[in-house]
Write a protein that binds this DNA or RNA. Structure first.
Lengths: 215, 215
DNA sequence: TGACCAATGGCCCGTCCGGGGGATGTTCTC
DNA sequence: GAGAACATCCCCCGGACGGGCCATTGGTCA
């Protein structure tokens, strides 16, 4: 019995290529989705053994789709597809229940191997796999181990996000129920950590680093 | 005689998929490159009829590689591959000498058709094609035609870019050889146009709109 | 030619921001 | 239980910032 695979990626070019490659490898590609919502729908309808799920998709991203599919008590395993190994995204994907990830720069053989591994994972080897993947991601993303895991404190991040959203010091203060001085202290700490000299630079740097997001 | 194609994309997954798809369509995939430098080298060595060239690649991006290949007096035609239609990037690709572009969300048939069209373009239909493509890009990027072509003045943009680069008012002033007051006047005008109330918001809005770019 | 606008600049003002002190309490870890 | 982070707050100060009002110089376009 062939392993049944669902492809979810918003680029048809990649889907068609994967379909051909996987078919030649003996897999049964049962469906294709070009966004997260469709992936969720087709996963419920087709109950594939494995979903190859791109992270970035319109309507609903791959991580959210993974969360929903994994939350629906099916045995479907999910492998994330990413352009580049991004620590934060992958960590979240794993928390969402992904069984593994594949960088798009890998060969058909590697994809086939990963799909077979994921499909055979009815015994839950995923916690172990997830842990080793997280290690790997850390290794990929942190060539300098002296660097802290968390550059910015949770509280500092809250302040920074509000600044990025257009709030002034006093507005941030009242939103977080703290004094203006505390906000300024957090900001001062942020400036040091992000090597910025004012809020404009701090927000830009945070955007570059993916700490805050443009609304 | 089959059309000879070179694939240049840093994601092996996509390359292998394209290779299979194009082979089935009767094309001769003569080589694969995973970065721009290699694409230039292989294009010179293999003299393919068409190069399918991804825009974003390590070492050297696709636009630069296109410029070099087109500059080397070969008849090789180049089709750009992009994730999403981005006006600026595509316009530059066309200036660099690309014969067309393909969004990665297109079918094998469309790819095949585009490759055939590009290969048959020994008579230079490219100027016309380029023009129509530019129109299309503009249409894609400008759903609202009431919008002004230029929201921000050239001078205002210079000020804004320097602010985004981390300059203070006085630094911008001395860099542009104008007084601080003039910089502040420009900024005031920018705030009005971008619906921002301070430089932080103005810069963020400009980044969203693609007016300025993160360094 | 007169209307308009971009670009330049001056003076003044109130507010905001960044940074310098120092202080308290909690929550961890070692 | 000592020490390190983290989060909270105070006072103070100089400079940066945003804005109001107005003026001059060039273009462009009707």
């Amino acid at each position: 019995m062939a392993i049944r695979v669902l492809l979810a990626d918003d680029h048809r070019m990649l889907r068609e290529g994967l379909r051909r490659s996987l078919s030649e490898e003996g897999f049964d590609v049962v469906g294709e989705a070009d966004n997260g919502e469709q992936a969720v729908r087709l996963a419920a309808e087709l109950t594939p053994d494995v979903v190859l799920m791109d992270v970035t998709m319109p309507e609903m991203d791959g991580v959210e789709a993974t969360r929903i599919i994994r939350g629906s008590s099916t045995r479907t395993r999910i492998l994330m597809l990413t352009m580049h190994a991004d620590k934060d995204v992958l960590a979240e994907a794993i928390r969402a229940g992904a069984s593994g990830y594949l960088v798009k720069d890998c060969s058909t053989e590697e994809v086939a191997e990963a799909v077979r591994m994921a499909a055979s994972g009815d015994t839950d080897l995923s916690p172990h796999l997830a842990a080793s993947m997280l290690d790997e991601v850390r290794r990929l993303e942190r060539p300098d181990p002296t660097e802290e895991d968390r550059v910015i404190t949770k509280r500092e991040e809250e302040v920074l996000q509000r600044i990025a959203d257009g709030c002034s010091t006093s507005e941030v203060a009242s939103q977080l129920y703290i004094s203006q001085k505390t906000v300024k202290n957090h900001l001062a700490s942020i400036y040091q950590k992000l090597d910025a000299r004012d809020r404009t630079q701090a927000v830009l740097q945070a955007v570059r680093m993916g700490i805050v997001h443009l609304s």
